[in-house]
Every structure is written in C-alpha cells, then in structure tokens.
Design a protein around this nucleic acid. Structure first.
Lengths: 222, 222
DNA sequence: CGTATGCAGCTTAGATACAAGCTGGGCGCC
DNA sequence: GGCGCCCAGCTTGTATCTAAGCTGCATACG
C-alpha cells in the first residue's frame, strides 16, 4: 500500500503559492502591504526560488503587483475593480448561455437539469463555506458546459480572483435569495430560454455587486 | 543625456521571454517540440533562472505546457483550439459593444468614429505585417473603449495567444475583405446599432475561422 | 523469444551565493 | 533652520550548485 500518512510533501512552489494566496484571502496580508520573497521564504522554511515562482503566478492572477527591486504589492481591491470583475464574469457566463442555446434545446434541458439539482439551488443544510463553494461550482459548471476550454480557463482565473472579494461580503444574509436565483437561472436554462437566463444571471450578479457596497455608479451591462 | 546607443540591456528574463515567444511565432520551435531550460539558456548565454521565469509566463499564456522533470512542451494548436480562441474573442468583443451601447449613443458615435478612421479600415498602403498589427490595434481599441480593465487584460492575453495562429493564416489574400469588414463594424458602432455591430463582428471572426481551414464543424455562436 | 531490471543520461526543483538597484534616514553644509 | 548628499539596509535579479525524478535502452533472466 502507499504510505498514506507519509506526507507526499507537496512541491515547495505549490506550498508557497497556497500559503500566500490563503494569507491574501483571509486578510493576513492586507491591501497595500508590501511583502518580500525572503519574508515568505523564511516563514515556510524554504528558499526564495519557489516563493518567487508563487509570486509570479499570483501576479498574473491579479493578486499581486511586482515592483522590481522593491517588493510585491498586495493589489488593493477597489469597488471599481470588483465591478469590472463581475462584469467580466457576466460576459463569459452570458457567452456560455448563448453557446448552450446554439447547441440545441436538448442540451439546454440536460444542463439546466443538472444545474437545478445542484446543491447551490437548495443550500438549506450547507454551511456558509459550503454554500460559497457550491456557488462557485454551480457557475463553473454552467461555463464548463459550453465546451470551450479557453473560456473556461479565463473564467476560473476570474473566480479565483474574485474569491478575495466575496470572502469579505457577508453572504449569510442573502442565502435564501442566492439559492433562489440559482434555481431560477437553472430553470430558464432548462426551459431553453437564453434571453431569460441571461437576464436572471445579470440580476444575480448585479445583486452581488450591490452587496459589495458599490452603491451608486453605473450598473453593469452586458 | 541618456546613453541611447548604450544598450539598456533589458532584463534577462524579458529577453528570454521574447526570444522563446518569437521562436514560437516564427515556427522555430514547432508544435510538439519539447524544449528545455538549459537549451535556451545556452543559446542566450544566461543562466537557467530567467529562462524558467519566461517558461512560466508562457505557460500561463497557453503557449507552453510544463511537465515536471521532463521539459516544456510546445502546445500544439489544433483547429479546435483555434475556434475556441476565436469564440472567446467574440464573447469579449461582444461584451465591449454591449457596454458601449450602455454608455450611450454619444459614446458609440465617438468610438465608432475613431474606429472608422483607423488604418485597419483602409490598409491600401500597409504591408502585410502592418495590416496585421493594425488589425490587432483596431480590435484592442474597441475592447479598451469599454473601460473594463479586467476584460481588457483577458482580451490582450487572448490576442497574444492567437498571434501564433494568425501568423500562419495567409491574410494577404483577404486584405480587401478584412478592411471592409472593419469599416462596416466601425460604421455600425458609430450609428449606435449594437446588434448590427455584433453581427458584423461575428461575421468577421467567422471568416477568420474559416480561413484557418476549420472547414465543417459547428460554427461559433455567441 | 519475451519480459523485467538496472543503469546512463537527460531533465527540472530547490538551495545558496553574489551582484546590483532602490529607499529612507542621518549628517554635514549653506 | 533648511537643503542636499551619502550611506546602511533593505529588496530583487541572476548565476551556480546539488539533489532528485523521468525515460529509454541495453542487458540479463525466465
């Protein structure tokens, strides 16, 4: 048997990546903080090399901005950026819906059914964290169903980036609304009504934007 | 004065990145080829460290796939992937058009005017390379006008990735059609007709797909 | 003859060492 | 007192070195 307990010891680069990312998400490394490779390397008892690799990944994902010879700035999340992020999601998810529609009503019925049965549509017995994860999976499933790997990759990158924001937003006050909106979206897809689906999607994301305190300002539009 | 001729000596990591990328684009490193850090490092007379950094960037951009302890595979460009790429572009550019529409007719008129005056709409005295660059700039301008930096970033990444494909497609046989389509798209934007603009955009990208020999198969749809 | 096994040569992963750039504070000069 | 310079300490950028994983072939064994 394989040594289950014998820690497979994940690659150092991965550990560094996850450590920094989780620190970013849980607020250990706050907006505007300037962190250094050596600092992280010391904390994790590894050399700077894997940390550097992690920093590069996190930069392309939009979490960090690297300043040569200076350090890595934790990119502040402005409400403006949050809206831009949500808009981008809207663009990609809307595309997915259109693509499904192009694939025919049978496909929509099938995917819609899968979505309707998804935990994210009835999260009565899920913790907040589980609901959060279910939400993520729900939308990811919709996008994946479009069968375009490029779009899927783009979308997943956005979701990662957005986690940082949604982590802040208290979803627990909107649980019922969220699951209801998911169910409504799934239903529209199942019924083969892309226009309605896109509309409900927009409403769903719009509410998320508003929950992030982005009061005022022009609303998203896709 | 600053020493203009005294080579500013770009960072090694950048040089490595550009070298490999250009090699990828001009076909020096063909699809399926497995290249190694040491190989490139030797060619450029630098250590493997900056090359590694370049490889990581190129992986996230979809040019390479890194296999641990094995090497970097030049990702083969399949017609399927080409279509996926174009579809993703369609999704983002369509979003940009919708966003412009939401910003009001004046904005559309302004941006449409800028697009109409763009070289890509009348490339009678441009070389093929210049037309290619103009095409890139034309579409990038459209997306940038939407004022969503997230979408803009995603789009630019896609364009980079697509260069590898379009470099192969002989555009010179379609110069007239391309410029005409650009002009038509610009006109539709200027006239504040998003539906028409998106339709023309789809036609434009569709033709690109077909020019890439992706005959048959379901067409893109967004 | 077919299969396993060990080894040689390749590759990357990570650690460490060294060089160079940027910043901010303290000191001296005006 | 105010201004400018210089230097100490931080940071990253790059090079180099060691350890370890993967592959494929040659060879020995059944």
């Amino acid at each position: 048997m394989s040594p289950a307990t014998a820690a497979p010891e994940a690659p150092a680069a991965d550990r560094a990546y996850r450590h920094v990312k989780s620190g970013l998400l849980d607020g250990t490394y706050a907006d505007g903080h300037l962190l250094s490779e050596g600092e992280i390397a010391g904390t994790l008892n590894m050399s700077r090399t894997p940390v550097r690799e992690a920093f590069l990944r996190l930069q392309t994902e939009g979490f960090l901005k690297l300043y040569p010879k200076r350090g890595a700035l934790v990119v502040p999340v402005t409400p403006t950026e949050a809206r831009a992020l949500l808009e981008a999601r809207l663009a990609l998810e809307s595309f997915a819906i259109d693509k499904l529609a192009a694939l025919g009503p049978e496909t929509m019925a099938e995917i819609g059914g899968e979505l309707a049965r998804h935990p994210a549509c009835d999260a009565t017995d899920l913790t907040d964290a589980e609901l959060h994860e279910a939400d993520r999976a729900f939308h990811a499933h919709l996008v994946a169903a479009a069968g375009n790997p490029v779009v899927e990759d783009l979308y997943n990158a956005l979701r990662d980036r957005q986690m940082r924001i949604t982590a802040t937003a208290r979803t627990h006050t909107r649980r019922a609304r969220i699951t209801k909106q998911h169910a409504g979206l799934a239903e529209a897809v199942r019924d083969g009504d892309p226009a309605l689906a896109k509309d409900r999607l927009r409403g769903h994301l719009l509410e998320t934007v508003q929950a992030l305190d982005v009061s005022g300002g022009p609303l998203l539009e896709g």
